[in-house]
Design a protein around this nucleic acid. Sequence first.
DNA 1: CGATTTTTTGAATCATATCAACGTACGTGG
DNA 2: CCACGTACGTTGATATGATTCAAAAAATCG
Lengths: 190, 190
Amino acid sequence: MYPELLTHIKKYTSLTPAEEQLLCEKLELKKLKKKEFVLEAGKYCHGNYFVVKGCLRLYFVNNKLNEQIIQFGIENWWITDYDGLMSKQPSTCYIQTVEPSEVLFLSEKDQAILFEQIPHLESYFRIMMQKAYVASQRRIGFIFNQTEEERYRHFSSRFPEFMQRVPQYMLASYLGFTPQFLSRLRAKKI
Amino acid sequence: MYPELLTHIKKYTSLTPAEEQLLCEKLELKKLKKKEFVLEAGKYCHGNYFVVKGCLRLYFVNNKLNEQIIQFGIENWWITDYDGLMSKQPSTCYIQTVEPSEVLFLSEKDQAILFEQIPHLESYFRIMMQKAYVASQRRIGFIFNQTEEERYRHFSSRFPEFMQRVPQYMLASYLGFTPQFLSRLRAKKI
DNA sequence: CGATTTTTTGAATCATATCAACGTACGTGG
DNA sequence: CCACGTACGTTGATATGATTCAAAAAATCG
């Protein structure tokens, strides 16, 4: 049994003990070292990762050969390449740990089986998707309506602890500007 | 019965005739004139709109008092303020028709009831959310990795017919730059 | 047709990127 | 446990691409 995930699910829906059992049987706990990959471009994405502990990043390499971070996954977030998963095509991105991490892996196949057996589990994932969608719509709003500086200040006031956990160049990538620019922002602040 | 929606659902899951019946009883067809609002900032968002015909836009007014378009909804898309819906707070954005349109309204309340009765309907919405999420993640990738010009060219090659349907200033807003800049891009092209 | 909305154009300005070099920290093998 | 190498962060000078403001031109609508 994996209490972190079950507690998280309870926030949004309810499962019977038997359903919890069924779910946990399908999950696979993976302990990962720092900088370990769970997905690489060109390979197929086979499922979904729930972060129990640690931090992962999802990024792709753009045409200037820079790594563009699309998403971070920290404790209690699901992370995967949904694009690759849905299209059944080889992935175009990478998912890698930023810190030593523990994740629960749920394969696409098992997820589909569980959805038929446990309607409330599908409900949970619908809500997760909806939340993720809202978050990324908000992010688009921020990108278009705030200067890089405002975005940085907003992010650092909202996630101060998180800032400590990742290198600056990753933050810069996530926020959509250069590491040099981030460095200057920090210098300016004091 | 609303064949456009039922056909769309069949692409992703299957409903029994009885389930289709149940669903359609809860839907409300609304015929809307051009520039009619279905949601305004400050009001509560009560449900979800499926676009049968026409085009709507979801936008908010930023601190420079410009309208920032977050999303367009055309035929076979669902559109609503999921943020306001989930948070149960007054909305911060507007949803307005761009053309005369027909939409099916499904209230949040009815949707919750239907999800309990029809697990496959929840499945359909989970998949819709996942698709929407993927689309908005992709959009973030584009924003960060292409110049404004590349984004415009990409968009116009991908949705040439759609470009004809909306005023340029809305496209500029959606793509994240000024109408003047878009005008110059077009002038450059020839 | 007149009124409003939308698009175009020009010139000046500003924010961020780029390139390049130098500092600093960190962890890995000897 | 120290030293070296690589990864990460800082700083300065210059370049560039998009914005802003203002006004005119064109298109759309009742």
